[in-house]
């Protein structure tokens, strides 16, 4: 947990990461709010808020009396969402820092290629 953002957003993001990585496959049950709260040492209401955020987006769904499950197609939707955010979250700061250091976009592209092959 970091201090810069509300915890419930961080909970939602952790669950998203687990769905994207495959640790939480589609149609499997996610930990209950109380389990999440005890494991992460956070308030159960906060954990519930994070889970509900994903329910509202259709990433998780509720089976009455059983618990929360990962929705069919959730992974593909999350990956698409994250790709949209990639430019803003990673490329923009990378380009800004490169410009500060006098690295041209061309040089940056070369650096990325070299790094990817090493």
């Amino acid at each position: 947990m970091d201090d810069s953002r509300p915890i419930f957003l961080q909970i939602a993001e952790q669950l998203e990461n687990d769905i994207i990585s495959g640790a939480l496959p589609e149609e499997t049950q996610v930990p209950s709010t109380n389990e999440l709260a005890a494991y992460l040492r956070i308030n159960p209401a906060t954990a519930g808020k994070g889970v509900n955020l994903l329910v509202d987006q259709g990433i998780l769904y509720k089976k009455r009396g059983i618990g929360m499950f990962v929705a069919d197609g959730a992974r593909a939707r999350l990956v698409a969402q994250r790709r949209d955010q990639f430019r803003q979250q990673y490329l923009a700061p990378l380009l800004a820092e490169a410009e500060k250091l006098g690295i041209t976009p061309g040089q940056l592209a070369d650096m990325i290629r070299t790094e990817a092959h090493s």
Partner: peptide, 10 residues
Amino acid sequence: DADELRGSAV
């Protein structure tokens, strides 16, 4: 609310 305060100041 605690979550409201978190990140409210930088």
